[in-house]
Design a protein around this nucleic acid. Structure first.
Lengths: 223, 223, 223, 223
DNA sequence: AATGAATGAGGCTTCATTCAT
DNA sequence: TATGAATGAAGCCTCATTCAT
């Protein structure tokens, strides 16, 4: 009966939903559980959100916002490889620090993919857009879209793969070296491929070391 | 509905369960749907499997077997980097060729992680073991466990990350370059960390013995 | 939503309720829908009417008023058979012109019959009273109550039966002959029981004084 | 847990549904109430009927069957007017003897009219078909379809109108004279109009008494 | 006085499971 | 042994109503 602004109630419910999805999966995140977790009567959930679907849409927005925030927070304002590495590291550390969010995200992605509305895509696209913006700022000048695309794609692949593995094993002691390893993979790829604007889309780089370093030189903005 | 021995029914039910999980997710793979898909009475499901959980355990075994088979089928019997690249490529191509199974696997992993029995770990561990065995055979002799560990870890991270992205976008035209890119990332890392810089991403290694220097010298089996 | 005095709101809410009952039946005429249709906040409905039941009581009054109006409007100020026929015809044509209201009325009658307060009876009794008054005026002098009773009863039976059939089939092309037929039945009965055999069904009576013999002689006002 | 043949259970549920509809209206005939009235757990209702809608379809069939039975039982195998009068009287007496069924029927008709499937029409059409068959047999020879149509239409109008009035007032002492009156109305109309095959569809009969009796003579089968 | 916010009760339906044969 | 029949628990959602302002 406590009079709580609707906006606040909504936020509470979304947070509770994330927690329940993390704990019991999308399947187990029932309206009852979510409402109870939010300390609200079941009917209140439906007062704030017309349907579970609508609530979950808000959850998607929330998760997308979290990603944006994590990425923004980890922008080191360095050159492209440095920034990309920092972003990836930020994501991985965030997963390790918030195991529930990793779990919730994986659940949501795979659930959202079967729902109407392509909400899973939305989360990805927003994350891609944020990465892209940060990386373009880091480059300090317009850069080949294809390369940015590849870079963001690999960052998402690596962070997702890391997250799935972490979700399964949640081995805290292994996490740190795994982060290093994963970031190292991105670094290795950037060292080998970054800066080569004319690099063919397919196949491993055949760029000679000399060429690689030169083009890389024009990439790493000294800012 | 002809009376069919329980043993046969079990296999049918597992297959039906896999199909239903692929089609509707773990959430949507209800006992009713599975039984119907297997052309069996609902009660038969519980006659063959004590509970849904037990049925899903069998499903996990089945999926683990699929992974083993995909990996085994893609063993090119080359040196380590070549073999690792081929295994990864095999996984990614398998995901692209069977979009439902990618979805089903992700669902199962994240579901199994919440259940008793660590079944998700089992699937991973079995896949790791298979990769390890193949790579050790490729190496031709016992090798540093840590390096194999890193390699298999990265292969799983990359294939999982790829799978998740593919699950969301299922963009067939983008898939091929993404496969190249993802395999290329593994290559770059192997080249950097194992020493092989110029091996082409696809096909048998054309790396010259000279280039295969340093760490790789002790690694790449020329077979 | 501008603040509107309660008195005005009451009328709006009753009108909205009638519309919603017509459109969705008593079952579907929820407080929410009624409030929204009246462009009023939901709480206002309960501010204006203690309960849904009270609102529906007002709806009954409204419907009773509609009947009174339809009957009054169709008073042709002829003799008794002519007037009775015109009243019945007026009702039937009203049903045909307002299919939703026929539905709403049937719904309300059968709903009201289950509620406390005998509101369905009230609507009938008011309609009977209106018919009685019109017919007594048509007779031009006090007449045998039993005959008026029979006449009004049959008018209600015929109009209700017509309404129910029309409600089910809503066949516009069939409606006109059905009206003729139904009015014709009343005519036939009046002719048999009141003596007027040949009065045309429609328009003013052309019955000759001579034919208006027997019981009707004491009945039909020549005015 | 008592093992009851499904068919029996279904019949019990349908009967319970009719009783609940009569008592609380279609609106108040909730699955819970129906199940309880049938002494069955709620889930059993959905085991026997896929949905409330399906249950209600069965209820419609049941009611249609009752009508057929009442009509058949009241076939006196006389000539057309006698038979028609007997059928109508049978219906009215049935309503008086089973007030719940009248109530349930009115509810169902007005509810069914808003649902998919035109089930209300089905009930009517079946009743019309039964009447038609009985009357044609009574005529002893093929007769003008239009006249049978008019007759059956009026029988349904009169019985429906009677039922609605009875539903509202349920005045047992008034019922008997009302039955006489209602049947009398049909009789009067038949006496005036029956047998006139060429009678225009519109307006009261202008048939002279002589003509009427003659054509009637050819109608009333002496059998 | 008027209304956003909130809610207990109950709506229909589906679930995994067990019973009785 | 297999399987139709049956069911308690729980799913999401909407209802009329009341509370607090």
């Amino acid at each position: 009966m406590a009079r709580i602004p609707a906006a606040e109630r909504r936020a509470e419910l979304v947070a509770a939903a994330v927690r329940m999805i993390a704990a019991h999966g999308v399947e187990g995140a029932t309206t009852r559980r979510i409402a109870q977790e939010a300390n609200a009567p079941l009917a209140t959930l439906h007062y704030c959100f017309a349907s579970k679907e609508v609530l979950f849409a808000a959850v998607f927005e929330h998760v997308a916002g979290l990603y944006r925030e994590v990425l923004t927070r980890n922008d080191v304002h360095g050159d492209v490889p440095t920034t990309a590495g920092a972003l990836l590291r930020g994501l991985l550390e965030w997963y390790v620090a918030n195991p529930e969010f990793g779990a919730a995200t994986v659940e949501l992605i795979s659930w959202g993919q079967r729902q109407e509305g392509r909400q899973a895509e939305m989360v990805y696209n927003e994350a891609f857009a944020t990465m892209r913006a940060i990386l373009e700022t880091a480059a300090g000048r317009p850069v080949d879209a294809a390369i940015i695309e590849e870079l963001t794609y690999m960052m998402s692949v690596l962070s997702d793969g890391f997250a799935l593995n972490w979700l399964v094993f949640t081995n805290r002691t292994a996490a740190e070296p795994q982060i290093e390893l994963t970031v190292g993979v991105l670094d290795a790829w950037m060292a080998t491929n970054l800066g080569d604007v004319s690099r063919p889309a397919r196949g491993a780089s055949t760029v000679s070391p000399a060429e690689t370093s030169r083009s890389l030189a024009s990439w790493v903005s000294v800012q």
